[in-house]
Design a protein around this nucleic acid. Structure first.
Lengths: 213, 213
DNA sequence: CCGCGTATAGTCGGATCCGACTAATAGGGA
DNA sequence: TCCCTATTAGTCGGATCCGACTATACGCGG
């Protein structure tokens, strides 16, 4: 069915760009990259062209021109329709208002943290913490170079602040968890099979790591 | 190509379950729900059966029995292979170690917060804050009923703590942003078309909302 | 003026995802 | 006992996603 509601947020980005001016898909992709929006939207050329077609099917955008420059492939230029402009705003409102379940890969892995055992788990999380803080520094640098320097209004990069905040929170949790593993406050139970599923028992004091203190 | 690396984390969940004991797919789904793991993994029946097949193709799991109970559809029971068990641990390690870009829907919407105008944006974020805090309360209740009451070891629900932490951070950012919109510290520039792309200007003092204080 | 790397612009086929559907049985109230 | 619903178990076809690929043009060092 062509009428399944559009869910890919890349369509939101397309709509946002076409609200400013008509464009062909390749230009959308490069504009998004220029504006650092490729950290909020997964810009994949294949998906982009599919998304544009889906938007046309829904009547949210329409082709306005098909130009050919020399013998390069044709470029089809699209523009937002009135419907598209209003749905753009409605969709943003909905996405902001209503939290939906997301399934980040990190959460899946944390879910089975136990399988690594305390030492390897702490080591892996420590490495993540390093990479996260590097990424945070890089992002701060981008903000300094765009917003703080007055090149771009803060509102236009507000999502960068938002994800920065999220990463900082993740970093804090990660570091805290490493500490709790090392000082023994996050206990590794020993699981055992019985006829009726699983039981577990807290390790005895002598089994616990001696690093507590 | 059947050899594209498995990326769906539902496969991680399957592996985690089969490491405990052989199971048929439907039982995997219900076990995951019972254990509240359906908040870290998107458990969709269609995807589940596809994922199981992919795991078989990769040799990470294998069918061990095909039972038929009365005239019900056949149930195929699977077990993890040695390869599957080791890849399970390796995969978790990798997912923990290396942060990867995710594209949450919220971030996409925040990216175009400007399009709603200050009043509607603040209103939408306020509603989100309410829903988030409700969800946080519910999650706390689940933790109280499982971990705090000693029914389940903390390590086995650690991902719930992790996502709780993430939601709290999101809630904090959301509330702070509402405040900044209302007191005028997050400024709405007026964008204008010129021949050379866009310019913007900060609103004059008299244009700014009078709620600042 | 000839390679050669990079930018431009988009296509294609297969992998993946998912919701809606089927179909049988168990349980429980009237 | 008979119907209605919930649970058990899985199938199917289409929608979506994505990486790898094609093909032209442009700049520039030698």
């Amino acid at each position: 069915m062509a009428n399944r509601k559009i869910s890919n947020t890349l369509a939101l980005a397309v709509l946002g760009l076409l609200r400013e001016q008509p464009m062909h898909p390749y230009e959308m992709a490069s504009t998004l990259r220029e504006r650092h929006k490729d950290s909020s939207f997964k810009v994949n050329s294949g998906s982009l062209y599919d998304t544009v077609e889906a938007l046309v099917r829904h009547g949210w955008i329409e082709p306005v021109e098909t130009a050919r420059d020399g013998r390069r492939p044709e470029r089809t230029v699209y523009a937002a329709t009135g419907l598209g402009e209003s749905e753009f705003v409605r969709w943003i409102d909905e996405l902001l208002r209503t939290p939906v379940a997301e399934y980040p890969k990190f959460m899946a892995a944390v879910s089975y943290l136990g399988a690594l055992g305390p030492d390897r788990a702490a080591e892996a999380l420590t490495e993540r913490a390093q990479q996260l803080s590097r990424r945070i520094e890089e992002t701060r640098a981008v903000l300094a170079d765009t917003v703080d320097s007055g090149k771009v209004p803060r509102l236009f990069m507000i999502e960068v602040e938002c994800s920065l905040h999220a990463w900082e929170a993740e970093l804090a949790w990660t570091r805290r968890t490493v500490t709790e593993i090392r000082d023994g406050s996050l206990v590794w139970p020993r699981a055992e099979r019985t006829e009726q599923g699983w039981t577990w028992s807290a390790p005895t004091d002598t089994e616990r790591k001696g690093t507590a203190g």
